[in-house]
Write a protein that binds this DNA or RNA. Structure first.
Lengths: 354, 354
DNA sequence: CGGACCATTTGACACGTTCCAACCAGGGAC
DNA sequence: GTCCCTGGTTGGAACGTGTCAAATGGTCCG
């Protein structure tokens, strides 16, 4: 309840000038030993705590960076956030984490807030792609780094993962496992991630040549569990002959929904239908049948984004915008294990009757 | 790249004094229409952005609150964070989210940081229970509210959920379902949450009277998926006669691990072993066998915590510390459905799902 | 016409810190 | 003795904003 104590009171208490106290705080080495001790004692007994606002005002910039994400509850972003934070704290910066819930108004409000805070820079996955506002922000002096999206004009740095490659890797793996009827489950394709993964999947299939069938497209309305369940029901309804033997899902939530429905309908995974997901969320490995999944280097993504930001914010004027692209990796688990040669034909029929 | 523009330049550009610009910003109603328009036009053309640091310095306190959690990736905390944020933004406050990873040094550093930022107050789930440091913080003028833990001395407000009741409800449900050999899976019991849930479980069993067996205790080293798997293996090794017919897990991760192991070993859930988890994380419903779970009002917890904080920070001096306790609710799903006397395999679609 | 009143606007100060030029004492070189 | 150097310390000027008493100018009343 006591009024906060300022540097001035500390100075008075230690019988010294404010400038000296400031020096003790910031460059302890240049102040004589006895004085330093006296000041530090005063700080302790008075319970002095620096006023960050005043420092920032003086310095012109705050010692924080803003991180704006679409959904804090999404494991992808929490891991990215961790990476950002690790890197930031190494430079003595702290992170303000902002959650937009994919709502443009919230995003706008947070951007204003961060600019008012004079943050060192902003890391953002924008709600609707790179934006006019971001360019203006940048122009007014706040560096902006795009996370998991790219600037069409190349006027910003960005970090992303190659989703096309991810789709390619996943489907190639299924082809290697001997699958020929492969479904792509996910949507809406208006999402860049979905479109890219689909493109990669198609590419892998085309490379395999005419031996493989076309990709069976099962578009969903969203990337969540219940969409996966519905897709599962749709697959189960198909006559056994047309049913895909493998499904590549645009993300793990969809894959888990699909897996759940398969389990419920007693369609065996991976024997009847193999499944590969995307994102490798924590629960992929914990699923009843551990889920194969394409893993993105999320932590690394965050670290690199923060590094780019520091480079741009602190570096000399000669800053070149860069677009860093990471490669995803496939984590193979039981849900897509290669089929055993025997009895692959008999089982699904039996299941279909049940 | 241009230097940030200050209120002074706006004033010059609009041919008016700084005080007037400030008034336009803060009390637009008291300034005459034409002047206001002129100033606003100047703000726009110059691209003026308020300097939050300067405002805070002047005001003495910042317009933010600190939220310190053990793990941002934990859905419990992300939901709490959402609640906090919803409530805070209604009062025009923003939230600084800090992640301690359960490490005391990180916690200490963040507390310092938040105090230096002169936040309105701090919401915290402390690493090691309520603390001397927190009391000092509070004494120096920064209100502290405990989240999901209680102050032994009653010197702080707190919000929590009744974990004893949660354990009681879960086990009562299993008893109602006709189970008699019930296991408690989780640990270490040194965690307050685990101890409380265990206590509730025991209480329910005792109330049921001598008809029920004792609780079978399976203590785990941690509350994660692999601990659950190991517990599952241990259960599977028991001779069928001693094997519990139901397991109440201290959290959902453990429950999912257990479920996974049961599936792998072809022990049927819920027919052979019923499972109830705790926390009702998103993936509980998405599990191969949808998981019954005790749900805590997490969002509400966050909102209430923020409300208490505002009450203490803004309210008059006469503030009484309060300890709010919420009641958890059991969400019943397939994993603990009452056993049918016969033919459990026949009607999978009878499973009710929300 | 003087005074009173109102609606606006102004100017100066305070907030807590950092930075920098200036100052001081003492010591060594000449 | 003067001069310069060096390690310490000081005082004061910013930084950008909010606040508030005082100034300004106009209108109305008597």
């Amino acid at each position: 309840m006591s009024a906060p104590v300022s540097i001035r009171e500390v100075a008075a208490h230690a019988g010294v000038s404010v400038g000296t106290v400031s020096n003790v705080l910031n460059r302890p080495d240049i102040v004589a030993r006895p004085t330093r001790d006296r000041v530090q004692a005063a700080i302790k007994t008075l319970g002095f705590v620096r006023n960050e606002s005043a420092r920032q005002l003086r310095a012109g910039r705050s010692r924080t960076i803003g991180l704006v994400v679409l959904d804090v509850a999404n494991p992808f972003f929490t891991d990215v956030a961790r990476g950002v934070e690790d890197e930031a704290s190494m430079s003595g910066l702290s992170v303000i984490l902002c959650n937009t819930d994919e709502q443009l108004p919230k995003e706008t409000r947070y951007l204003e807030l961060l600019e008012e805070h004079r943050v060192q820079g902003i890391l953002i996955t924008p709600v609707a792609g790179a934006d006019e506002r971001l360019a203006r922000l940048q122009q007014r002096g706040t560096p902006v780094i795009l996370v998991d999206s790219r600037s069409p004009s190349g006027s910003q740095c960005s970090v992303a993962v190659d989703d096309v490659l991810g789709g390619d890797v996943a489907v190639s793996h299924l082809l290697d496992g001997g699958h020929e009827r492969i479904a792509f489950v996910g949507g809406p394709v208006s999402l860049r991630q979905v479109a890219d993964r689909l493109e990669g999947a198609t590419r892998a299939l085309q490379r395999a040549g005419p031996a493989a069938d076309d990709l069976m497209m099962i578009e969903t309305a969203a990337l969540n569990v219940s969409a996966g369940q519905r897709a599962g029901a749709a697959i189960a309804e198909l006559p056994a002959r047309q049913r895909p033997t493998a499904a590549f899902c645009a993300n793990d939530l969809v894959a888990l929904g699909l897996l759940q429905e398969m389990t419920r309908l007693r369609i065996r995974v991976p024997d009847d239908v193999a499944i590969v997901g995307y994102d490798d969320i924590e629960f992929a490995a914990a699923a009843a049948v551990p889920l194969s999944s394409v893993r993105q280097p999320r932590h690394q993504l965050g670290r690199t984004a923060a590094q780019l930001l520091l480079e741009e914010a602190l570096g000399a004027d000669g800053h070149e915008h860069r677009e860093v692209v990471f490669q995803p990796e496939l984590e193979v688990r039981r849900s897509s294990q290669a089929r055993r040669p025997r009895d692959t034909a008999a089982a699904p029929d039996a299941a279909a009757e049940a």
